[in-house]
Design a protein around this nucleic acid. Sequence first.
DNA 1: GCCGTTTTCGGCCCGACTGTTTTCAGTCG
Length: 577
Amino acid sequence: MINSKLAELLDVIADMLELEGEKYSRFEVLAYRKAAVTIGGLQEDAEEIYKKGGTDALMELPGIGKSMAAHIEEYIKTGKIAKYEKLKKKYPLDIANLTKIQGMGAKKAFKLYKALGVKDVQGLKKALAQHRIRDLEGFGEQSETQIQKGIDFLESGGGRMLLGTALPEAEAIRDKLLKSGLVEKAIIGGSTRRMRETVGDLDILLISSKGQRVMDFITSMQEVESTIAKGPTKTSVRLKIGLNCDFRLVERTSFGAALQYFTGNKDHNVKLREMAIKKGLKLNEYGLFDKRNRNVAAGENEEQVYKTLGLDWMEPEMRENRGEIYLALHHKLPKLVQLADIDGDLHVHSKFSGDSSNTFEEIAGEAKRLGREYAGVTDHSKSEYMNRGLDEKGYRRVFAEIDKANKKLEGFTLLKSGEVDILKDGSLDIDRKTLGEMDYVLASVHSGLKDPKDAMTKRIVNALNSGQIDILGHPTGRLINEREPLQADMDKVFEAAKDNGVAMEINSQPSRLDLNDENAIKAKRYGLKFAIDTDAHRISHMQYMRYGIGMAKRAWLRKEDVVNTMDLGSLLKLFKK
DNA sequence: GCCGTTTTCGGCCCGACTGTTTTCAGTCG
């Protein structure tokens, strides 16, 4: 995968062009930055895209035009970009890593290079230790401290954190603020509100008349490690869990506009502002203004902001500039699936296998509490010997237990299933007869995750073509920040799934979220159905459903795209087919 | 350098905070 390296190169080119100053327009710099973001965020390897469709395919990507496509082609063919190499001679410093330090941009880095010969982070550390920075023009003692802090943060592994870790932390902080009596309103914004799989920092929006006291309260909170910036309307802190959190205080009359601004991703917001300009208006976080600087539609809710721009309000998960603005303009937004639509959970482990200790009573009790009508018991199959996987006999024993338990349960049904292993040749490790006794079959790949793409594609497609699978479990096997997804031609996988009526799982475990939004968007284009499951190994995991729902909404899935929104009768009929 | 669901040329989003400064550049989101 060349994406991250390529994105870094494009970003550094942007930095260097910025250092060139007047010679380049800031828009050209911006173009490189945009391209870097696009490439860095791709799921598919840019090299694959190029191999399949050449520079034309690359130019389909947002922010990639003729020049960028040529740069990418050059990089794939030669491992280098001439424009970068040329600039590098003039700026022979490790901009990519230096600018990872918070508060350090290309300009500061270059200043330090010119004055002190600092070329990389190592050199910077040396200069800091010798206190050579504080005497430079434009720097001071504080600068040294800030830079040192930035380096420390970086080295302690500051990066994007799982949504499943970040969201509960944000909620805890929000609740504390609400309880403090100092704020009228507190809402979590940013990528957390958009339910992105990982979160770079938290944004919390506040209404309060006690500005200074609120900011003091925040910086003295237990969760806070240090204060990065503190002003009357904006405070940034570093949290002990290793995440930064921005707090913004706005007037009630601006709250809608502020919430809009702090929720949409950058592209979405830029698009909205452009629309505002075309209407002779100006949009910022304080409101929507006309030429005489009169607020025409800030209001207390976002709906007014969207409405005044001619748009329907849309759910936060959609605000990524993936075409949602066009749909909103033409009143064609899809009605997205909601957590409350979920009627059951089709991937739950029990004490009969694996590292789970869940009893049927516990599973049923928690599921009922969450308003669900059924839960599928999907214990591991025998290939997972590390997880005490079940063989045919073992499954029969579990099915008998399920029958017994169901007799005692009222208004709730446990379903007979299994998370069956897909073997290397694509066959399942449980015989046909036993699979036939299951209400449905969930099958997953658990081994050989690094196998070559061709073999892996064949393996999964064979399994799908066996006609024995109802749901493909965590289809790419990735673990966020830990393990790369398996390499398979997802187009072929989705095609085979469509042919065989197999639903794709959206696994709600915070470290999985698999399929992710991008793959789910693709799968939906093939007309596939989805099962949003929790893969619960603990009873508490059954609440992870909201993360899977977040992913589904990000993929614009509707209720009818998700099989476990159906009532039990309809679901069983579907699986019978 | 990119882009267009009116445009293939003429546009391209907006503001807060910091540190080092005497009015602002740099950085960030």
